[in-house]
Design a protein around this nucleic acid. Sequence first.
DNA 1: AATATAATTTAAGTGTCACTCATTTTTTAT
DNA 2: ATAAAAAATGAGTGACACTTAAATTATATT
Lengths: 240, 240
Amino acid sequence: MGLMAKIDQEDQSKAQLRANEILYSAMQLFADEGYHAVSTRKIAAKAGVSEGTLFNHFGAKQGLMRALLESIYGELKENASEILKNELATKPRLQALALNHIRVMSRDNALFMRLIQSYMNVDISGYTNIAGSVLHEMNLSYAWVFDFAVKEGIERGEIRQDINISALRDLFFGGLEYGSRSMFLHNAFNECETRVASLIEPLWLSMQVGQVMDQAEPRLTEACQRLEDVALRLESLQSK
Amino acid sequence: MGLMAKIDQEDQSKAQLRANEILYSAMQLFADEGYHAVSTRKIAAKAGVSEGTLFNHFGAKQGLMRALLESIYGELKENASEILKNELATKPRLQALALNHIRVMSRDNALFMRLIQSYMNVDISGYTNIAGSVLHEMNLSYAWVFDFAVKEGIERGEIRQDINISALRDLFFGGLEYGSRSMFLHNAFNECETRVASLIEPLWLSMQVGQVMDQAEPRLTEACQRLEDVALRLESLQSK
DNA sequence: AATATAATTTAAGTGTCACTCATTTTTTAT
DNA sequence: ATAAAAAATGAGTGACACTTAAATTATATT
């Protein structure tokens, strides 16, 4: 469930509602102006609370970012499990997962870049170490959907068995992030589908390439054999 | 040339030497404690100058980061052109480029994460917009080495012609960054070569897969030719 | 060598920042 | 209605990146 929806809900304590209001204000400001450009005072003012309240709820400015990133990962994971439920073939599954990833990323790219930093535990002290490990766990459990889809693809015989899953995972998510970064730089958000397709294609090919050979070879041999048989029959027909 | 070397040089003005001393102090502190954890005061103290001098030379704290990132990119580019000069076959070229990239990245990962942020123009105002575009240019001119190697591979017939270079580029650099991030998290720096190899393999396979068809094609052509020959003979037989 | 001019360095500011804490206000339990 | 607990407040704090006017050093000219 998105942040927007949470604010309108009534079945939560006033404290939770306050927290969500603050978080929503922070999200808007971060998205518009960037993390460092927005002061805690400004966030508190926009949410209509005092600065102290903000710190009571989130401990530190980084706490806001952590909560937002958890919310984004939650969305990513929800969408992903929906995709795995609805799409059954492996290739469209991977394409849908990629499209979901790239869309959420390009929408919240400022937050996502911040995520990478938190994720790396770089430039961060004390408090955020916890956040770092939480995010790491979230990232792992999200990246797991790729592994799941690929493994099921192998079981079904859609993908050859001797692939290196972790390498393909790195290429998949890394390629998506790198690609969406350049998409962001060129303001080419309309190319999402095309880019995703051309990104998946090489990976899909490499997952199948063994099968292309394996499947093509007997068929080619068979076809050649049949043609040659026909040729022989025809030749013997002529010689009579 | 590395920063370390620059400090010992004598064929540069006192001003340049000062700047390099400050930059070197900043690099060490950033690497040890992270960008945000280090104050300009601390950098100035380590370099043995006043805080004002630092700002005279680099304009802002971000200016230090910009200069450092330019130096890293410079190293990446130097190594890359060296690789292109020494290695002639395409696959080892790509592997060497990847290894160089991953090694420099894992050494300076804190700086590199900061680079990504600068590169994105996220969280950054005024001054760093310039830095952003400079870095963008550097990134483009560096990423060009991949395109060069691949294009030359196509010319030589090592790689099929109908590949999508930009998609492969995204997968290459994205996969490397994502992979080195997880390598960093698991402190598995000794696996560099293995990881690079398994990352390149799927890409290389997908660049070549068209050649599987190329191998099949002559056999099909031959078979068809034989059948057509027979057909011709039969036609001439019938007409008699 | 003396002087004028330019470039560089300095250190004492300045406003803003994330964050704290004693106090007040609101909510919950009795 | 009252006591106890929880939450909200806003003035206050040190640290921060960055500025600026004055002092120092380097360079050019006579």
